[in-house]
Simulated assay, not measured.
Amino acid sequence: MKKRIFVLYTGGTIGMQQSGQGLQPDTALAGSALQPYADQLDFDWHIMQPLIDSSALTVQNWRDWLVILAEKIPQYDGILVLHGTDTMAYTANLFALALQGLDKPVVLTGSQLPFNAPDSDAPHNLAAAVALLECDDTPQVSIVFNGKQYPAVGSSKVSTETAAGFDNPHFGALAEWTATDGWKRVAEARLPDAVVPKLRLLDTAAKVVCHTLIPGFAVEALAESLDSGRAGAVIVQSYGHGNAPDDTGFIEAVRRYTGRGGLLLNISQAAQGCVAAVYAQGSALRAAGAVSGGKCNLETATVLLTLALSEGWTASLLADELQRLRLTETAPA
């Protein structure tokens, strides 16, 4: 019996057509893109209205998609999500973290060029995604792109210039695919510790912001932002192992912010950086209440803090979730 696959088409370059203003999403993709694989799998399409360029992604989109997937996952053998590349890694992280106790594979793919464009990577990416859903029942969320399967957590878009649009600097690829040899496993899936199955809910009013530290005025600007009190959670992309200037005004602003219950997650701005208590230079920030993000990247951090605000997590619960995801090996300082 053929597997039944639910296809959630959200938009993105893969199905775009040229318009007077440039490329824009189009529904025509649903009529032909997966037809060559009809003998292998049964596909049921759900086309979002409206389709979006993924750079227009909102938390409301995420809420809507989660509700759909929570309903459809029990009815199908797997899920294929067609998504724009700009924010695909963010959405992959959301699905991985919000669909707790997932028992079916969820595969996200897209392309750098529209499906019908000359030399498009879209047919190759679709073929690989279909082949993975046909042969692999591992209950995880992953990105399939340029012949590789990446775990959702830790993945990022790394290029707009080549077909190799994604990578996972910390955890690498799980498998590699060619049209002639099919899929070959190269690493074991990094599944989080088991939890009771449930759908985590999102609050569209959750306010998460990100600040990247650079030499100079950045710490003063960040201190002013923290004291404004508008954001419920803040990501700080610090240096190396989580190091930051021990500027008194900045550290005191962090202390005031976390003292009011604000969540501040410290992650490294290095693509393969790990925030940990290694250097004394980072100790003041840790002591002021920042949660050390370990191997957490920006996409994972954004989703974690959105969920944290939606569900009322404390800094301690945030640290526990980082450990459950195996992003930190020991309790963060």
Rank of each mutant, 00 (worst) to 15 (best):
R200I: 00
R200V: 01
R200K: 00
R200H: 01
R200F: 02
L201Q: 12
L201G: 03
L201V: 05
L202C: 00
L202I: 08
L202V: 00
L202S: 00
L202N: 00
L202Y: 00
L202Q: 00
L202F: 00
L202D: 06
L202T: 00
D203N: 13
T204D: 14
T204Q: 08
T204Y: 01
A205D: 14
A205R: 11
A205N: 12
A205G: 09
A205Q: 11
A205L: 05
A206T: 06
A206P: 04
A206H: 05
A206Y: 06
A206C: 03
A206Q: 06
K207W: 03
K207Q: 10
K207G: 01
K207L: 11
K207H: 09
K207M: 08
V208L: 06
V208S: 02
V208F: 04
V209E: 11
V209Y: 07
C210M: 12
C210K: 08
C210G: 06
C210I: 09
C210R: 14
C210Y: 04
H211T: 04
H211Y: 15
H211E: 11
H211R: 12
T212W: 06
T212M: 14
T212E: 15
T212I: 05
T212H: 10
T212V: 11
T212P: 05
L213D: 10
L213N: 08
L213I: 13
L213G: 07
L213H: 07
L213C: 07
L213R: 04
I214T: 14
P215T: 03
P215A: 13
P215K: 06
P215H: 12
G216L: 10
G216I: 08
G216M: 06
G216D: 10
G216T: 11
G216E: 08
G216N: 08
G216K: 05
F217T: 11
F217R: 12
F217P: 13
F217H: 09
A218I: 01
V219I: 11
V219E: 08
V219C: 09
V219H: 09
V219W: 02
E220R: 14
E220I: 14
E220T: 14
A221C: 14
A221S: 14
A221D: 14
L222A: 15
L222K: 02
L222V: 15
L222T: 15
L222I: 15
L222Q: 10
L222H: 02
L222E: 10
L222R: 01
A223F: 09
A223D: 09
A223V: 03
A223H: 07
A223L: 04
A223W: 04
E224R: 15
E224D: 15
E224M: 08
E224K: 12
E224C: 02
S225F: 02
L226D: 07
L226W: 03
L226K: 05
L226Y: 07
L226R: 01
L226P: 03
L226F: 05
L226C: 06
D227Q: 13
D227H: 09
D227M: 10
D227S: 13
S228Q: 11
S228M: 11
S228L: 13
G229I: 08
